[in-house]
Amino acid sequence: MNPSLRRFLTDPKAVIGLTILIVTLAAALLAPVLFPRDPWQMVSRPFLPPFQDARYWLGTDMLGRDILAGIAYGAQMSLIVGVASTAAALILGILVGAFAGYNGGWIDDALMRGTEFFQTIPTFVFALLMVAILAPSITSIIIAICVVSWPPVARLVRSEFATLRSREFVKAARVLGESNSRIIFTQILPNTLSPVIAMSSLMVASAILTEAAISFLGLGDPNRMSWGYMIGASRTVIRQAWWMSFFPGLVILLVVLALNLVGETLNDALNPRLSRKGRQ
């Protein structure tokens, strides 16, 4: 087995993280099978406390909706938004960063000023504003999260490109007459990917947190169950019914924690030189 992969899979942090993520993915995929009824539908009496009715193990909310079913369907929303917005942000960030770092000069300056600008503005407020103005939907949430999360990718890729472009293997490719786009995509880009991969896991985590916060504030997709929505909707009855907001929040915490653990171990496995200092 590849040594990086082995180092990754034998780290207990990665094992815990991956287990949580696999369970979450399974819940998201199997939600329609496990809970054939619409998660928005009333299934039992409202305010049913958890661990009392075996059919509704985590209880019901103020409208009698099954909390566990909501969590399973909410996993779909979180994972879709997390993965899609991160993929979009990676593409945008890699393109901007590669173009700036490879070209240097004024193109680099201009693109990096723009990147800095997007890092300066308060990202969460900007994301909220975008979702509000574009009308709340899963697409607008993905766009908003993508727009606020690409700058770190661009900066990372740019700095890698800026150092790699004057290395010998790149010069050799140039002498051989390879085109710029070929050099960028087949020579330099593969060499910059490991830190980007480690970063992407943390980006999914923060995208999930942002989506939950947006939905908590009532700007979620009105057609999709979401963990943030469940907490936001039941926060006014928290004194009577703690379980309605407790369980969805705990699930967010676990999934984000899992992604952080995986991201950290990926970083250690893929960039052993960089992480040696921090590991001790």
């Binding site: 985590a205 947190l209 939950a212 943030g228 907490i231 926060r235 915490l253 984000v256 924690l257 653990l261």
Partner: peptide
């Protein structure tokens, strides 16, 4: 710090109300 990092702000706020106020 890993746990603080992963905790949704609005949720821990609600839980703090539940514990320290209610």
């Amino acid at each position: 710090s890993l746990i603080f990092y992963a905790t949704p702000l609005f949720w821990i706020g609600l839980m703090a109300i539940l514990l320290f106020s209610v």
